[in-house]
Simulated assay, not measured.
Amino acid sequence: MSADHCQEICKAIRQGELSEAGLYSDSAQESSLDAVKRQSYFADVPATIKEMVDDKIRKLQPELEQHFKESFNKRFEASKFLLYREGHFFAPHRDNQLGRRVNMSIYLNDQTDEPADGSYSGGMLKIYGLIDRPDWENRGVDLCGKRGMLVAYPAHLIHEITPVLSGERYAIVSRFLDAQA
């Protein structure tokens, strides 16, 4: 995603209506709020931005199917636009419910070690299970966010967002689904 698109989307998130992001429960088949496990916001952005982002994701499908060696449903989970403020986080979890196969996270601003205008510190995406060895079972791989970067990984892997220490973290998430879903 280009720097200009990232800036445009960050602006839309700041101007959009925010709602607390919830947790999906397989057993209840609904979303609920749990501030102990997740603190962040979903932002409502204009339809033109949603369509632009979803179109870009659709175009990635053949490449991701080849990379992950599987077919996905032509229908994917619509993009969600997220805002994490200082102190916000998402505790370790999996996203493999509802036929979800591959998670995609798109960073809209840079993660830095020191506070800087337009960036954030902390808020690290940490993915567990990327290295299939017993001594790595409880070790996560930290991914440093760079504006415009897309990260795709299997939805069954445990992952988390560590607490944001300063600034605001802007991101987009979406998922490709099972071919049968």
Rank of each mutant, 00 (worst) to 15 (best):
S2W: 11
A3D: 13
A3W: 00
A3G: 09
C6K: 00
Q7D: 10
C10V: 13
K11S: 01
A12V: 07
I13R: 02
Q15G: 04
G16E: 03
S19I: 09
A21M: 06
Y24W: 15
S25L: 07
S25P: 10
D26V: 12
S27D: 05
S31F: 09
V36W: 07
V36N: 06
R38P: 02
Q39M: 08
Q39V: 14
D44G: 03
D44A: 05
P46D: 12
P46V: 13
A47P: 07
T48A: 15
M52P: 00
V53T: 05
D55M: 13
I57W: 06
R58N: 12
R58T: 15
E63L: 14
E63V: 09
Q66W: 04
Q66G: 07
S71V: 08
R75S: 10
R75M: 13
F76N: 01
E77P: 07
E77T: 09
S79V: 15
S79H: 14
K80A: 12
E86D: 13
H88G: 14
H88P: 09
F90Y: 15
A91K: 15
R94G: 11
N96W: 05
N96F: 12
Q97D: 12
Q97M: 15
R101W: 03
N103G: 13
M104W: 00
S105A: 08
Q111K: 05
D113V: 07
G118C: 04
G118V: 07
Y120E: 01
Y120V: 01
Y120N: 01
G123V: 02
M124P: 00
L125Y: 00
R133G: 11
R133M: 14
D135S: 03
R139S: 09
R139F: 02
G140P: 14
L143W: 07
G145T: 10
G145K: 01
G148P: 09
G148N: 10
V151F: 01
V151A: 02
H156W: 11
E160H: 06
E160W: 02
E160M: 09
I161C: 09
T162V: 03
P163C: 14
P163F: 07
V164P: 00
L165S: 13
A171I: 03
S174V: 05
